[in-house]
Amino acid sequence: MLDLKKLIICPRCGALHKKRRLDFGEVALCSVCEEKLMQSCKGVEYKVLAFSFAGIIFFLIANLFSIVSIDIGGLDASMRLYEAIYRLFEEGYVLIAFFSFLVLELYPALLMVALMMYGFAMILGKKEGARSILRVVASLEEWSMVDIFFVSILVAMVKVYEYASIEFGIAFWSMAIFVAIEIYLVRFIGTQTLWEAWQRRFDEAG
């Protein structure tokens, strides 16, 4: 029998590789197609804990304050995230409102909380807890769409800037930081690395 824990299959071309312990900042590439296989997971739980905590704070600010206010010849209006979603609900577009609520409010919030809990579980040595949280993270990460919403704000503003004066609120900038944090956690670190860190923490004796 092979030691499965020491093997890794390239996600792109399927080539089988033997794992090697990576130094801080090192990245392992596939020898056939040069796809990223794994990266060093040293101290990743502390990074995840710090960044997800910051993410939660910026997410709260992005929700509680006005994202953008406009002024069209004396008529002014401002928008908060939940107000925008509720307004669509009032218009009778329940499906889009519900979908937006999931991908802009619930999933991103749960994702950040789950990542923070992963950090705590790893530091406190809760093996099963960290495992079930990681399963949640893996199924949530693709369904957070705050980044797309952020670009949509810019596109919407391009559509109105000719006849309105626009002022971006504090929530807009917080959302930008939240998106940066989320991209760092989900794309740069990634659940793959979190699983490797989990395995190294709990499974390997040496």
Partner: peptide
């Protein structure tokens, strides 16, 4: 794939921002 949703979110934003008596955007 998910970036096609830009147009949907633009609707969400414009509908929320522009609903005055004289001019309003509805989905």
């Amino acid at each position: 794939g998910p970036w096609s949703l830009i147009d949907v979110f633009v609707v969400v934003i414009l509908v929320a921002l522009i609903h005055f008596h004289s001019v309003a955007i509805v989905p």
